[in-house]
């Protein structure tokens, strides 16, 4: 008799375990991301960045990777793995960047790369989020007395090849009936050297990179950045198509940085706000209310860790492009309520 009871109890245990597992499995299966699984298992995020571009991604004086793009890598690692330092940075040239992402060697590409129509549709990639709004800008020697791009007829401009810039210049020239000669370099080092030597009258790239290039010239004061911006260059993060949950994590990690700035939550006041705040917006953001982290397949402390490790978007921008760094006015990268384009979808 006792044997029957034992069997019955045993069956119950097994059944409840199975039911428990099934329940667990259902909760997990709502978020099924191969990339997220791989990152967690590896304990490391593989992040594709620029090989060395001041402002975006560069190795600082102590040999650590630093920059606006690097900050997004660190933020994602903090959100997913709990540690912003668990990132392996892969420095990529513009030629190989997409192939390396497609082949799965990196989990995300954030390499001052322009988000375009063809890249979205033809390369099998998802343009997760825009972290920097800019446009093609020109820098010329002051002694040429040029004030506008339209006056550059006949001038020679140094460009880095493998970018969207060559075509933008040609399109601009055609539309405005000026002929701007381009000199296409494979790497920034030789392009800077040629510009320094006077081989070209100017240098062009997106706004942030031009500011960086100017800081790298022998005599930065000899160069002036022209006011016109001749193209749209929304720079941002790419991930592989077919892994939407991972794409969402990258997207909302950037949004978390912007939301933090909008809520006036910074690295310094973060802990205090978490302890004292009664505002529903801030409580939702910090995971004190709602289950936003879990909806991404993470835990509810994810956004706290992001701000803790890299700060909010404004802090990150100031660190690399602010007056003490490259000195690029925030312009389009201001928050939407300050006249810029950095805007967050509703945190609901």
């Amino acid at each position: 008799m006792s044997g029957v009871i034992l069997k019955f109890l045993g069956c119950c245990t097994v059944l409840s375990c199975l039911v428990g597992f099934a329940g667990e499995a259902r909760a997990q299966s709502t978020i099924k991301s191969p990339t997220l699984e791989a990152v967690k298992q590896r304990g490391q995020l593989n992040c594709g960045v620029d090989t060395g571009m001041p402002g975006y991604a560069f190795q600082n004086s102590s040999g650590q990777w630093d920059g606006l793009d690097v900050a997004l890598c660190r933020a994602v690692a903090a959100a997913v793995l709990g540690d912003p330092d668990k990132v392996k940075y892969v420095g990529l040239t513009s030629k190989v960047r997409f192939t390396v992402l497609q082949s799965g060697e990196i989990d995300m590409l954030i390499r001052d790369t322009t988000l375009t129509f063809t890249r979205n549709t033809q390369l099998g990639l998802n343009e997760a989020v825009i972290n920097f709004y800019t446009g093609e800008t020109f820098m010329v020697r002051k002694n040429l007395n040029v004030a506008h791009v339209k006056e550059l007829d006949g001038a020679t401009i140094c460009v880095i090849t493998g970018t969207t810039l060559e075509r933008d210049i040609a399109d601009y020239g055609r539309a405005n009936h000026v002929k701007i000669n381009t000199l296409l370099f494979d790497r920034p080092e030789e392009a800077f050297a040629a510009a320094n030597a006077g081989r070209c009258d100017g240098y062009t790239d997106d706004g942030g990179s031009v500011a960086a290039a100017r800081s790298g010239m022998q005599h930065p004061d000899d160069w002036v950045i022209l006011p016109e911006v001749i193209s749209r260059e929304p720079l941002g993060a790419f991930v592989r198509q077919g892994d939407e949950p991972w794409s969402n994590i990258v997207k909302w990690t950037h949004y978390a940085m912007v939301e933090a700035e909008a809520l006036d939550i910074s690295q310094s006041n973060l802990d205090e706000v978490k302890k004292t705040t009664t505002e529903p917006e801030a409580r939702k953001f910090l995971g004190l209310e709602g289950d936003f982290g879990k909806m991404l397949g993470l835990d509810n402390d994810w956004s706290y860790r992001i701000v803790k490790s890299v700060g909010n978007y404004g802090e990150v921008y100031d660190r690399y492009f602010g007056p003490k760094a490259l000195g690029l006015p925030r312009g389009l990268n201001e928050l939407w309520n300050h006249g810029g384009l950095q805007y967050v979808l509703a945190w609901q």
Partner: peptide, 24 residues
């Protein structure tokens, strides 16, 4: 020559064209 902006095959075709067309 790609390193010093001489427009030869590797720079123009495996550089600019590759990047613009996405046909690696």
């Amino acid at each position: 020559g790609a390193a010093i902006a001489y427009p030869e095959i590797f720079e123009i075709f495996a550089g600019t064209v590759l990047n613009q067309s996405g046909r690696e």
